[in-house]
Design a protein around this nucleic acid. Structure first.
Length: 998
DNA sequence: GTAAGTGGATCCCTG
DNA sequence: ATCCACTTAC
């Protein structure tokens, strides 16, 4: 029996948690739903709960399932649980992402539902190719991609949700293509079955089937925990229920606001399904944000709150206010990239290297947006890593090897065989390969069988194959692979070393003369590719070593049900490769050089950085042109913004880069609230830097030291690029100083199209487009130094303060909305009930389904359930006050967070020290604030002040920066060149990230 | 008619 | 990097 909570009040696990987290971790409710906003310690809470359940409730590790959404999250979770649990007990937990857990069960028990035990996994390219072929053969007018998406959706949906009545329009389009789609689906499944393959969705579908029919597979499971619950889809929900069918004990963690995988059939609705299916679920909200400055949270909320249907959650800042997030407008995408580079440099220098490139992330809506940024970073010699880009396993040379292994493992895998048939070149071409595939699909034989028969002379293939090609296929493909197949399991050589995975790959490489193939096919970078092959061998060796000694992959024995142990290395290795989005990062060994991170927003979920740039915030990028669900796009932006700890920059190129002067509209998510952003980077005075140091728990150098380390001619302000790129007079170079003669523009040009914003009537409070000579000169003498302020800036600050007072009242009202949950929305259940009827729209953002049943049923459930539903916010928490000094430290995660005393850093001038944020009342909203007292442009003659970062055109540069002062624009191909010169032992490719150095 | 090489437009997010 | 339309060599 679990000891009562009171018996362990001071237990180590609980001591590192705040009140809400503690309640979540130690809850004895059967089902627990934890709603966790960004930066609220979600993973920490979930891992603590696992430890709690095992150590204090007494559940055996092997009886716990923990499912995450990504491989990476699973790995991290395992590591953290391992640390807390000790004894390597975390290895016994059935822990992984949904797909790998499903695969494990299918490998062990799939036989019982008639699954061929040696099933392979059809990856992306497989299923794409199969579907493309089917479409072509049937002459279906549909785009193969669409068909594939349709099939995937159909599988991912699961059975449970009632069929949504289609709108008339949908019905019409459906019926037109319905027949085709259904037939393609059927044929696709038949093809997969014939090749003994399961695609990613099938893994889940089949596992559901298995657990339905043989519940005893999971009869040992006592409790189930799900991470990133908002991203589960219908079939995963079913799987979760089946995992937990014995005890119905489930803990989920999620945040509806961060649901960004709807396009992959994730359903926010699953949260309400859970509440419906598991009455008496305890809800706990984690609302304190330990990650970000208040101003970042404020602006993020301004974005997410535009979604009126959303379940409103609070986001309580723990840290100080910080500087205003920036919305920067640039002329073009390349100017944007150059600005990002210059701004990150400025931050780093101004911080006295307290911050470095490792602290910077650039988050993109689309991976393809990285082009300009990569080249700008390359030009400046800044190293970066790209996540979510090309994966190790997707490099061609690796993919080819894997395909060879797959054909060895499963000769019937036609697609893999088709891809390798002419690699290395064997004089066989597209047409022949296509013909063979067609022939195979029309017969009972696989391509491999047809080929062997043909070469042996047993039976001629219908497809024409030249004699030359035939010979080379026989000698270079069929024979070597058959030799290898024969050797599996044998011992080789006098020493009797077993013929394992590594030996197999070695022999394959020799038989194919793979090195020579690489040399001839890729003369430019063959070394790199060959090194990748070596690395692949290392990975294989690691895999063999790791799997030999750990019982990682096995499920606990169930008495009544026979389970198959996977003893063969090859199929397990291949499954691992297919399911791993990135390789087991065996990295480290000196992460010496700081790297800027470039990532897609999707891949950045769950991560955080001190400095975050979100470029390309325009309509068409975010929301994406092809996006169906604009609410989801908004959440995506919200996720991106909430990754930032201390500095957040959005930016938007005004003109379309590829086009002929086409304009970009500012993202509709930002347009209505753009006034809450500063129009250029903040000035990094002492108070701001101290605040940053505090939030990050770092030590800030003295002002003197920072100043001394500053490069000559350093641009202290964000002034290299015009704040209004459309102001042709104010081009970034020499015209700035002439601009003073122009009358100030009454109103900034709007970025949005007709009806986009509602500027009318709103007075823009004194916004200057450029500065006077007076200010400039003062800026560049005194106020340009950190901690010094010019008189004019001081006055601006005072003016700002008085405006703040005026707007306080109104702002506070807004603020309350922002930070406190509305009274009518105490809990999720309350939300569901209060939005009854029309509330069904709130449940499902995209599809409107008939979920009217929920409110009534739920209210019944609430009264009937034995466990009273707790209010989401404990009363004492609702009136929560931050401790004086604002030094609530993040529980346990941050180590020695040394509180930085504001007093310790006195400013040298009369510059008013930033008042400490008021603790009782949240700071007033910034929406109506005048711009921060921006310091004057720090240059009179901009040409002489350009830093090396400025790249526009062939601008004269300070001496010592390259011949003729003009940096040749490096073509992107050049950036890709491997660095083979310096390193002795080349580490060619470090999964999961790609590191490129100029 | 097939294989192989070339130049040009295009590219979202993931297991 | 991947997918084409197009040319050239066998």
């Amino acid at each position: 029996m679990p000891p009562p909570l009171a018996a362990n009040p001071g237990h180590a696990i609980l001591s590192s948690l705040n009140d809400a987290q503690r309640r979540a971790v130690s809850s004895d409710a059967q089902t627990v739903a934890i709603l966790a906003g960004p930066g609220s310690g979600k993973t920490h809470t979930l891992t603590s709960r696992v430890v709690w359940l095992i150590d204090y409730v007494g559940i055996r590790p092997e009886d716990v399932i923990v499912a995450t959404f990504t491989v990476k999250a699973a790995r991290e979770m395992k590591e953290r649980i391992g640390k807390a649990l000790g004894n390597g007990r975390e290895k016994k937990i059935v822990l992984g992402n949904f797909h790998s857990i499903a695969r494990r069960y299918l490998a062990a028990y799939g036989r019982h539902i008639g699954l061929n035990q040696k099933f392979g996994i059809a990856d992306d390219s497989d299923s794409r190719a199969i579907i493309a072929r089917i479409c072509k053969r049937r002459k279906v007018e549909l785009d193969p991609g669409t068909v594939r998406a349709w099939i995937s959706k159909k599988k991912a949906k699961g059975n449970e949700p009632e069929d949504v009545p289609k709108t008339a329009r949908q019905q019409a389009t459906k019926t037109a293509g319905q027949q085709d789609l259904d037939e393609c689906y059927e044929e696709y499944q038949a093809q997969l079955e014939k090749s003994n393959l399961l695609d990613f969705d099938d893994l889940l579908v089949k596992c559901v089937e298995l657990l339905r029919e043989f519940p005893s597979c999971v009869s040992n499971i006592q409790t189930v925990l799900i991470d990133e619950y908002q991203d589960t889809n219908g079939i995963q929900y079913e799987l979760m229920k089946l995992f937990a069918q014995k005890n119905r004990s489930i803990t989920i963690v999620g945040d509806p606001d961060q649901s960004i995988y709807g396009w992959r059939s994730a359903e926010i609705k699953n949260l309400w399904r859970l509440l419906k299916d598991f009455p008496g679920t305890a809800e706990i909200s984690l609302e304190q944000n330990y990650r970000s400055f208040q101003s970042i949270l404020n602006n993020s909320l301004l974005v997410i709150q535009q979604d009126k249907k959303r379940y409103r959650k609070a986001l309580k800042p723990v840290h100080g206010k910080g500087s205003r997030p920036v919305l920067r407008r640039l002329k073009s995408a390349s100017a944007e990239a150059d600005w990002i580079v210059s701004e990150m440099r400025r931050v780093i220098v101004m911080s006295g290297s307290m911050l470095n490139f490792n602290d910077v992330a650039i988050l993109l809506r689309s991976a393809s947006l990285s082009r300009h940024i990569e080249s700008a970073l390359g030009k400046s010699g800044i190293a970066y890593k790209m996540v979510g880009g090309k994966k190790f396993y997707e490099r061609v040379e690796i993919k080819t090897l894997i395909d060879y292994l797959r054909v060895i493992n499963q000769p019937g895998n036609n697609d893999a065989l088709a891809r390798i048939m002419n690699v290395p070149k064997r004089g066989i071409g597209e047409v022949t390969i296509k013909g063979l595939l067609e022939e195979a699909e029309g017969s009972t034989f696989s391509v491999w069988t047809i080929l062997t028969k043909h070469c042996r002379g047993d039976r001629n293939a219908k497809t024409k194959i030249t004699k030359h090609a035939e010979q080379r296929i026989a000698a270079g493909l069929i024979r070597p692979l058959e030799n290898i197949r024969k050797k599996i399991g044998e011992s080789v050589g006098p020493t009797g070393t077993p013929f394992g995975l590594v030996e197999m790959i070695e022999q394959l490489l020799t038989a194919l003369d793979f090195e020579k193939h690489l040399k001839t096919s890729y003369p430019d970078d063959y070394e790199q590719r060959w090194a990748n092959v070596q690395e692949f061998m290392n990975l294989a060796a690691d895999f063999v070593r790791d799997t030999d000694q750990s019982d990682d992959d096995f499920l606990p024995e169930i008495e009544e049900l026979e389970q198959v142990k996977e003893d063969e290395m090859l199929p397990r290795f291949l499954a691992n490769v297919s399911l791993a989005s990135d390789a087991q990062t065996a990295e480290d060994e000196g992460e010496a050089k700081p790297l800027v991170t470039i990532s897609t927003i999707h891949a950045a979920k769950g991560l955080e950085w001190p400095i975050v740039f979100v470029p390309a915030v325009y309509n068409g990028s975010i929301p994406h042109m092809r996006a169906e669900d604009s609410d989801e796009e908004r959440r995506l932006l919200y996720v991106a913004m909430t990754r930032a700890q201390t500095l957040l920059y959005l930016s938007c190129p005004v003109f379309n880069s590829n086009g002929n002067g086409e304009r970009n509209e500012l993202s509709p998510f930002i347009e209505p609230v753009h006034r809450a952003f500063a129009n250029k980077g903040p000035c990094f005075d002492r108070p701001i830097m101290s605040e940053i140091a505090k939030i990050l728990g770092r030590q800030l150098q003295s002002e003197d030291a920072i100043f001394k380390a500053m490069p000559d001619m350093f641009m202290i302000e964000d002034n290299l690029f015009p704040v209004d790129p459309e102001d042709t007079r104010g081009a970034s170079t020499s015209e700035i100083t002439h601009g003073t003669n122009q009358p100030p523009r009454a109103k900034r040009q709007k970025l949005s199209g007709p009806g986009g914003g509602h500027d009318t009537g709103e007075e823009v409070p004194w916004r200057k487009e450029y500065t006077t000579t007076m200010e400039q000169s003062s800026a560049f003498t005194v106020s340009a130094l950190p901690g010094f302020t010019s008189a004019s800036a001081h006055q601006a600050a005072l003016a700002k303060a008085s405006v703040e007072l005026e707007t306080n009242k109104k702002a506070q009202a807004v603020k309350r909305m922002a930070h406190n949950r509305p009274a009518d929305q105490k809990s999720i259940l309350g939300f569901v009930r209060s939005t009854s009827g029309s509330g069904s729209a709130a449940l499902t953002s995209s599809q409107s389904s008939n979920h009217n049943l929920i409110p009534a049923k739920l209210s019944q459930i609430v009264t009937n359930s034995n466990k009273p539903v707790k209010p989401a916010i404990a009363p004492e928490l609702a009136a929560h006050k931050l401790p004086a000094g604002n030094q609530l430290s993040r529980p346990s995660i941050k180590k020695e967070e040394e509180p930085v005393k504001r007093k310790a850093y006195t400013c040298f001038s009369s510059s008013p020290t930033k008042p400490a944020p008021k603790e009782e009342e949240p700071e007033p909203e910034e929406e109506k604030e005048p711009p921060e007292p921006t310091r004057a442009a720090a240059c009179l003659h901009s040409t002489t002040f350009l830093t090396p970062v400025q790249m526009n055109g062939g601008i004269k540069r300070p001496t010592g920066l390259g011949r003729a002062g003009i940096v040749p624009v490096a073509p992107i191909e050049k950036l890709r060149k491997p660095m083979t010169t310096t390193t002795t032992k080349m580490k060619p490719f470090k999964p999961p990230t790609m590191i490129r150095r100029p």
